[in-house]
Simulated assay, not measured.
Amino acid sequence: MKPFDLNIRHLRAVAAVVDTGSISAAARVVNLTQPAITQGIAKLERQICLPLFERRPGGMVPTAAAELLAPRVMAAIRLMDSRHATAAQVSAFLALARCGSYAAAAVETGLSEPSLHRAVGDLSLAVGHILVERRGKGVALTPRGIGVARRFRLGEAELRSALFELALLEGREVGRITVGAMPLSRARLLPAAVTAFHALHSEISVGIVEGSHAELVGPLRDGEIDLMVGALRPKSTDDSIIQTPLFEDRPVILARAGHPLADLGGPITPEAMTAYPWITPAEGTPLRAQWQAMFAGAGAVAPSVPIECGSVIMVRQMLLHSDFLTLLSPDQVAVELEAGWLVKVADAPGDVSRTIGVTTRADWRPTALQRRFLGVLKEQAEIIAAAP
């Protein structure tokens, strides 16, 4: 079942009944008749295959399912910020936003193009703004449409979490956890955590989306991914995300086996640091800042960088066939170090380290299984931190 298979007005009615304790009071809150609310609750109960209320003389007593559902519904309504949008309209609009054309959205949803046009047009009237505009043979979201799509995606994520929690209430482990994997999480931490989590909860699928912080933070804010794992950014004024540290990573200076500095056997001198060219990530990345801090710690001026590259695979290949140096976490090239293709030249001078952790939305309320995944992630981080 998809989140917007559920009627939004019926969901609001359930939350209102939980809040007020009676259908009559809820009817005044959501502006529906009592029979409409009764019928809506019955339909939702059939859809989720769980009772939502116990009918008693003193009023409607919410079941565990309703207690789970109501907070998620209220959060979704608050995030979507549109009392007049229907589930069908929201679903059509999000499909159009994903696909970029009515034709492609029609294929994805199984609806006709005229139906999609009508649903998106009605939604524009409901929110009071033009949401899409023609761009050649396709369409693009207007600036207002981009904001509306973000709010609807966050609401959809809340309702999806509600469905997962209701399934768990029935004893069924279903759902999906989508993780944004930044470079420093991919070599060791995230593979270990995903493997350990799957051994405990094999019915839960885990999706891994690779990218940089800049590439992943937008989908995180939109609710398309649940959490990001990797190097944390310096504290900022952005209160829409929360960063939770897991452990400290200390990068080292690396080169190919047989490099002139391969047998240095001790601390690296400023002269040696500037005698060979470097490969580093681009300006503005945490590792580039650490590279610059390393030279400052050694009392040397950082040289110009002839090659900027953030791909570990490409950096490794370039190191193997040149005298370049680079600064990387040993975890990122553990296989190459073990095979003897690359060698550690020296520890980085100065206090060069990066905090590895989890980044989430400030208003994210993880499901029980998402909390368990976070727990496994922290356990694996503790193992890495304790390793020599």
Rank of each mutant, 00 (worst) to 15 (best):
A381W: 04
T20S: 11
S353E: 06
V139A: 09
A36P: 01
G350R: 13
D19W: 13
S101Q: 09
A106V: 04
T355W: 01
Q292R: 14
D5N: 12
Q290M: 12
A275M: 07
P71R: 11
R151Y: 03
S124R: 03
I241T: 15
G218A: 14
A64W: 00
W341S: 12
L116W: 01
Q317Y: 04
A386R: 13
W364G: 00
V132P: 01
A105F: 04
A92M: 02
G128F: 13
P143C: 06
D331C: 07
G21M: 09
L319F: 11
R361H: 09
R12I: 01
L11Y: 03
L220M: 04
F152R: 06
E215V: 10
G375H: 07
Q380P: 04
L264Q: 03
A92I: 08
L50Y: 04
S311W: 08
R365Q: 15
R371E: 14
I204Q: 00
A42M: 04
G175D: 09
E108W: 01
A162K: 08
I177V: 12
P191M: 08
A87E: 15
E203Y: 05
E215W: 00
L123P: 02
G207C: 01
G171I: 08
S22C: 01
L123W: 03
A300E: 10
E224T: 10
R83G: 03
M182D: 08
G171R: 12
A387V: 06
V333I: 15
I253A: 10
L131E: 08
A214Y: 06
G121V: 05
